[in-house]
Design a protein around this nucleic acid. Structure first.
Length: 290
DNA sequence: AATTGGTCCAACCGCGCGATG
DNA sequence: CCATCGCGCGGTTGGACCAAT
């Protein structure tokens, strides 16, 4: 179950993609859309499995990809989103236009984890390292390190502690980044979460909708702001070079056959559902501790 | 110059889930 | 209801690159 039948076929190329392969795939999808991925390699004249083609397209060839180093703002946003979402890379990527889940995952594992540790923050729990029980002698250390935190774990700890509760700071930072304050927030201090959690429980549904709107707006703002400084160029190997403004590409809604459009349209709903679940657990966690 | 060790990233793998027959 | 297919996701790996020795 779940395994591609094409994976069993022989004579399929693996490993790094050549420029010629990229060009074939790019030309095919540009002209026809990907349709059914399993048929793409055959139709495009590639000795690859459909899965490999899909991955190459999503992670490298998509015209709306933003190439190059992550900005400080993007890194901050990833850290903040990871505090809320955990290792849901696709959900995080959905909030960062032009970035892939793979890219973000790699950045997190190679760079952001270290940065957080250097700042004295445990990247798993988002709490200060001093608060994390030493696990040197714990035989389950590896498990502990690698186990993604549950939402309640991420949210646990005294929310009113502006020093010890990284999340409370983090959340405030996130809301600042979103350019808005929550419905009932009257102050901007780090006690916001503790002061408002009961209200949140009462207005959970509305709050989820509100958050979703915020996030959507944030995405649009990011798209808009990035459009002035970025355009995506692809082609290569002497082939034609196509430039397309990112915003145009990302926001375009008229292509039913393009996966990234389809994906971007699906995300808000998924994100809302997921957020609803997280917030429910969030409320329960604080409800029990208060 | 050769070797070693660490880092980073592209790509692969395995699994879960929804759609379909 | 069940089996199969196709897609998407997160975890893992292999190898290129670079700095230190």
């Amino acid at each position: 179950m779940g395994r591609h039948s094409c994976c069993y076929k022989q004579k399929l190329r693996k490993g790094l993609w050549s420029p010629e392969e990229d060009e074939k795939l790019l030309n095919y999808i540009t002209n026809h859309g990907h349709g059914c991925w399993s048929s793409v390699p055959k139709l495009a004249g590639l000795q690859r499995c459909g899965k490999s083609c899909r991955l190459r397209w999503i992670n490298y060839l998509r015209p709306d990809l933003k190439r190059g180093a992550f900005s400080q703002e993007e890194e901050d946003l990833i850290i903040e989103l990871h505090a809320v979402l955990g290792n849901r890379w696709s959900q995080i990527a959905a909030r960062l236009p032009g970035r892939t889940d793979n890219e973000i995952k790699n950045l997190w594992n190679s760079c952001l984890k270290k940065k957080l540790r250097q700042k004295g923050i445990d990247p798993i729990t988002n709490k200060p390292l001093s608060d994390v029980v030493p696990i040197e002698n714990n035989k389950n250390k590896k498990e502990e390190e690698e186990k993604p935190p549950t939402t309640t774990e991420r949210f646990e700890g005294p929310p009113s502690d502006s020093v010890g509760g990284y999340f409370s700071f983090n959340y405030q930072q996130m809301m600042n980044n979103f350019g808005a304050t929550p419905p009932n927030a009257t102050s901007s201090d780090a006690n916001f979460v503790a002061n408002n959690i009961l209200t949140w429980e009462q207005e959970e549904v509305k709050w989820c909708e509100y958050l979703n709107t915020l996030l959507l707006n944030n995405t649009v703002v990011q798209n808009h702001s990035s459009s002035s400084s970025h355009s995506v160029m692809y082609g290569g190997g002497g082939g034609e070079v196509i430039t397309e403004p990112e915003t145009t590409s990302f926001m375009r809604q008229d292509s039913s056959s393009s996966s990234w459009h389809h994906h971007s349209q699906q995300q808000p709903h998924q994100f809302s559902d997921m957020y609803t679940k997280d917030l429910q657990r969030f409320s329960v966690a604080f409800g029990q501790s208060m």
